[in-house]
């Protein structure tokens, strides 16, 4: 695989984390324009851990994701009192606040005669753990996809349990869910934290692959894209946002012919999809149809057993 392809696949993998992060909140019916904040927080926190404190990559990644999860928890309490558009605006304001804080955040130490650490709008250089540890681009891509598979497995697992059922109940009819005994605030806070941690994993991977991060990377467009991936790909399954990412980065970025018009194509695609498929390509009805079709090809006994499919 050539370097460019590895780069494209690695980007698809990393951006998938933020897409899945927005997807978790979309499942519960919340639109967040602020998932890039958790991506950024983890990128900085994990970068500080490995480049400045001398931590290894994996503890640094866990630390970054944990800090992002904690930040999501702090955001969740005040913003979940808001609903719909107000929640969306609240998350956007939070993300911009985080970005502006990183614009003025300076914390540097001298390592081997060189100043290392976040330097406000100049960014944070020297997050070189991966390169200093002789981890190749291919190996790093495999790490990205290993973690992405783990997150996907986690999301598929929760979709088959009570937690996934409750997220979907809240997403479809919050009042009805509450009337059946679901504590709305508790589960929405939980979803926000899970989403924060997932974005955080992506952020830590991003910082270590690029070795350099700066606040403007984590601007509102990253948040808009992360939301659009789920809306394009569909909310019926966790594969949906990945399809969205694949369509955007995989198709448009790798086929350079569109590069100049990328945003125009992307915006048009989102607009068309929102008109014709408001819940994306793989929405719940599409997933249901695929499952029904699949069952038709299964042996009779299996069909009988899974006929009444449910989150089990």
């Amino acid at each position: 695989m050539d370097d460019h392809l590895i780069q494209v696949f690695s980007n698809v993998g990393m951006i998938s984390f933020i897409a899945l992060s927005a997807y978790v909140l979309l499942l519960t019916g919340e639109i967040s324009f602020g998932q890039q904040a958790f991506f950024a927080i983890s990128a900085y926190a994990s970068g500080i851990a490995t480049a400045m404190w001398g931590w290894a990559f994996w503890p640094g990644l866990v630390w970054g994701a944990a800090v992002a999860g904690a930040a999501a928890f702090l955001l969740a309490w005040p913003t979940l009192r808001m609903r719909g558009l107000y929640f969306a605006i609240g998350t956007l304001a939070f993300a911009e606040m985080v970005r502006l804080i990183f614009e003025i955040f300076r914390y540097q130490v001298e390592i081997e005669g060189e100043l290392v650490g976040p330097d406000g709008s100049e960014g944070f250089r020297g997050i070189r753990y991966i390169f200093e540890s002789d981890i190749s681009a291919t190996q790093y891509m495999l790490i990205i996809y290993l973690l992405l598979s783990a997150v996907l497995a986690f999301l598929f697992a929760i979709e088959r349990t009570r937690l996934g059922a409750i997220f979907r109940m809240l997403g479809e009819d919050e009042l009805l869910a509450e009337m059946q005994g679901v504590n709305r605030t508790y589960y929405k806070v939980m979803a926000t934290v899970i989403a924060g941690v997932i974005a955080g994993i992506g952020g830590a991977l991003y910082a270590h692959m690029n070795t350099y991060i700066e606040p403007k990377i984590f601007n509102v467009m990253l948040g808009v894209h992360s939301l659009a991936y789920g809306l394009i790909g569909g909310l019926g399954t966790a594969f949906g946002p990945l399809i969205g990412v694949g369509l955007d980065i995989g198709l448009l970025e790798s086929t350079r012919i569109f590069t100049g018009y990328r945003m125009v194509v992307f915006g048009g695609l989102v607009a068309l999809l929102l008109i014709f498929r408001p819940r994306g390509l793989l929405d719940e009805a599409a997933v249901h149809a695929i499952k029904s079709l699949w069952r038709r090809f299964l042996p009779a006994a299996q069909t009988q057993r899974s006929n009444n499919r449910a989150p089990d």
Partner: peptide
């Protein structure tokens, strides 16, 4: 609406 009858009861 976006769940099956069975899923409504399972939920």
């Amino acid at each position: 609406h976006r769940m099956t009858v069975w899923e409504n009861l399972a939920c």
